[in-house]
Write a protein that binds this DNA or RNA. Structure first.
Lengths: 201, 201
DNA sequence: GCACGTTGATACATTTGGTGACAAAACGGC
DNA sequence: GCCGTTTTGTCACCAAATGTATCAACGTGC
């Protein structure tokens, strides 16, 4: 699958959970970190909690076996209806340069250049987090969504990982660190990139 | 439902199939003709063919009763993840500046600038409350409506939460705190933004 | 193995907003 | 007007949420 994905692009993946070796949930996690390709999970495990976990891991739908093949078709159609004509989000940033606020990100170089001429390198984690925000300007992202999209992991109850990453990123992008205005905190909800984003060709 | 839809905009509809009068499938059809609001169908009819029909009519997902409430939440999230847009729930204010009374709100910066040159930052809670008022100028909003819109929660009988939030917001926007003119109290009813609102750009 | 940078975990400081108490204001009946 | 009642304003306190410094674990390149 990895080889095929590297080769071509696909509209949707139907993913079984019970597989020898790496299981479907783990694959789902990896796919989510890598991009936003639609996933329909399919499994004999009809358990509620399994479905919930699958969906929370970023799957678009979860169909328990045994299933009616026509239902599979209908569900695939339902997902594609939603995902196909989706132009609103900024596509993939890989290889692009992106302007936002007073900054310009060079994705390939992982370098942030400021209006005032200074430039800062980003670590891979910071770049990942920042691109997730840049692809979804003005969307409020919960901590668990961010954890899923950055690292493909679920958050424990006392997990401050995302706060830490945001804090580190802010240090590099906020002009006034005491009053963050690019990545804003939405109390009880998460974080939100509150500026326009322009992708340079 | 039709009246509510004409009045406000919604992110998603959870639709039961078995209803007295017009049934859910018919409603779904109508909604699809009217627009693309996400629909999650919910029903006691667990039959394959019903699910397939629902999905083919344009529903985004179809969950048979009895269902696990957490699964409903996960499925709603999965749909909303796809339909993205969801910019904070704050429709047309995101990224705008708004003039009202002697003030100008910069939504992105979460800063209130006054005619006299002073500027005050707002907390995320204050910003949310203020935007709710700014989106509904001169509408009287009951405390329970405000609680629902700000925090998505119901109010207890002795709950002074909203009064407190309004009080805190007033401190930042009222020129004469002893005589609030911008957010007026309507006794036994609620609060009301009593000035014109102009969205810039 | 060692120096280095990155990242997650932990601990602590700070901010925010809900709660309950009480004061002030509004209202109604007289 | 006067009083009692209800409603509202706001203060002080506290619990929860968030920001971030620091440390440990880990990997990487030499």
């Amino acid at each position: 699958m990895d080889a095929a994905l590297a080769e071509d692009s696909y509209d949707l993946i139907v993913l079984d959970v019970m597989m020898p070796g790496e299981d479907g949930l783990s694959v789902c996690r990896r796919l989510r970190v890598a991009g936003s390709i639609p996933i329909l999970m399919l499994t004999a495990l009809g358990d509620d909690d399994d479905r919930i976990r699958g969906l929370d891991l970023g799957a678009d739908d979860y169909l328990p076996k045994p299933f009616n093949p026509r239902e599979l078709v209908s569900r695939v159609r339902a997902i594609l209806r939603r995902t196909s004509h989706r132009e609103n989000g900024i596509g993939h940033l890989a290889g692009r340069r992106v302007k936002f606020s007073h900054l310009e990100l060079d994705y390939d170089q992982a370098v942030l250049a400021s209006n005032d001429g200074t430039a800062v390198p980003l670590t891979s984690g910071e770049l990942k987090l920042l691109s997730i925000f840049l692809e979804r300007p003005r969307a409020t992202l919960r901590r668990d969504e961010l954890a899923l999209l950055t690292a493909g992991r679920e958050l424990g109850p006392l997990d401050r990982t995302i706060d830490n990453q945001v804090s580190r990123l802010r240090r590099k992008i906020e002009p006034d660190i005491l009053r963050p205005r690019i990545i804003r905190t939405i109390r009880n909800e998460g974080y939100c990139l509150s500026c326009d984003v322009e992708v340079i060709e």
